[in-house]
């Protein structure tokens, strides 16, 4: 059981985070359960082009679909007003995947969920959000593997 170090996380969170203890506690709860989500400080680019160093939870969440479990790659950005504002969530397709746009996903991979739209601390939290994501993605996966192009031409048999 990888012990997650709250102190290290608090150091990672830049000073601009207004509710660091709350934020760290939630991150620790989530990454000790979803082992493939890692806390990463990175520059987030806002729609107006401005950037800000924000904490993200990056990695995969396990989604069951048609009897198989897939590791769906996601990135959940925490604003510095977290938990009083919802995370900004994306699926992060690899080169072998393509985004399946729909009710919950736009062409940029941004995730839209009522849980995010109706976010309200403390009823809403990261753990609940990920559980909702896993259920929703289990019905409508946000990404699919690119079809591998089968070459119909059979190589010449010497």
């Amino acid at each position: 059981m990888a012990v997650v170090n709250e102190g290290a996380l608090k150091k990672m969170l830049s000073k601009q985070y207004k509710y660091r203890d709350l934020t760290v506690r939630e991150i620790v709860n989530v990454i000790s359960h979803y082992k493939d989500l890692k806390p990463v400080m990175d520059a987030y680019v806002f729609n107006d082009g401005s950037t800000r160093d924000l904490m993200s939870l990056t990695g995969t969440v396990p989604v069951s679909y048609r009897g198989n479990v897939y590791n769906i790659p996601v990135c959940l950005w925490l604003l510095d007003t977290y938990p009083y504002n919802p995370p900004i969530c994306f699926v992060k397709p690899t080169s072998t995947m393509m985004i399946k746009t729909g009710k919950h996903i736009d062409a940029n991979g941004k995730i839209y969920l009522p849980y995010l739209h109706e976010w309200k601390h403390p009823q809403s939290d990261l753990f609940g959000l990920i559980q909702v994501m896993i259920v929703v993605f289990g019905e409508e996966p946000p990404v699919f593997s690119r079809p591998t192009t089968q070459t119909p031409y059979q190589p010449f048999q010497p």
Binding site: D36, K38, P62, Y70, N71, I72, T96, M98, P141, F144
Partner: peptide, 14 residues
């Protein structure tokens, strides 16, 4: 080292 899960996605159902 825990290399972490390999990202995966359902095959495309054509």
């Amino acid at each position: 080292l825990n290399g972490g899960a390999v990202p995966s996605a359902p095959p495309t159902y054509t």
